[in-house]
Amino acid sequence: MSKPLILDPRTKLGVVLVIGFLIFGSTVTQLLLLFSVTALYGFLNGVRRSLPIYVLILLLYFLSDYFASETRNILFVSLAFFSYFIVCFLPALLAGEVLVRTPAGQLMSALTAWHLPKTIIVAFSVSLRFVPIAGMEIRSIHEVMKQRGVAFFSRTGWLHPWRVFECALVPLMIRLLKISDELTASAITRGAEAPIRRTSVHEIKFHFCDYAVILLLLILTFVLLVRR
């Protein structure tokens, strides 16, 4: 396997922005073009595992679309209806996946380069890092609830919904408050309030491939907009 391209996070962000708006108002053919371009872009950037899934969704759409016009069965029609929406978003999801795979540190450096206030950078970095952790916290709480017989889908769950509501939310709230306290302490004792403009250990620079990607993106946008 070849090594993924090394792109500036700003380029990746630009791709997301442009593709995100291009998907509106595109015909199916244009969406297909967008999809293949972003699929190639994703492939070069190391998105490999989820590509087959996206292709499958695309196939699902075409299949259900075909069966819908052949059989006029309501099942296929609604399948086509919903998969069509997902297909519309596929190019954007691909561009997003490339961006998400960027290490948080590099993303931060892009924000730093744009002179965003420190609090915003910290907020962004914290929420980004915390999304997977929040999932783990919720899972752990549900496991304890199961053990103590107050899980969502248990007898108590049906009989005493308020109890379950309370048992699910209170530990989560307490955890969240505690984590915010600890994280704040950690931030403050590491100079997060210093009134100095942040720098970044990652030096981000535009390279040849960045310019190439941007150029191609511009051409694509031009072509698509002209054809409308």
């Binding site: 948080a104 420190k118 600890e182 590491r190 997060a192 942040r198 720098t199 250990v201 030096e203």
Partner: peptide, 24 residues
């Protein structure tokens, strides 16, 4: 576990220095 701001060890160590605007 709950003291970290970034997901990579190296970035975490740099957090303090970045806040003080040190050069890379």
């Amino acid at each position: 576990r709950s003291q970290f701001f970034t997901s990579v060890v190296g970035d975490e160590l740099a957090f303090y220095c970045e806040n003080f605007g040190m050069r890379p």
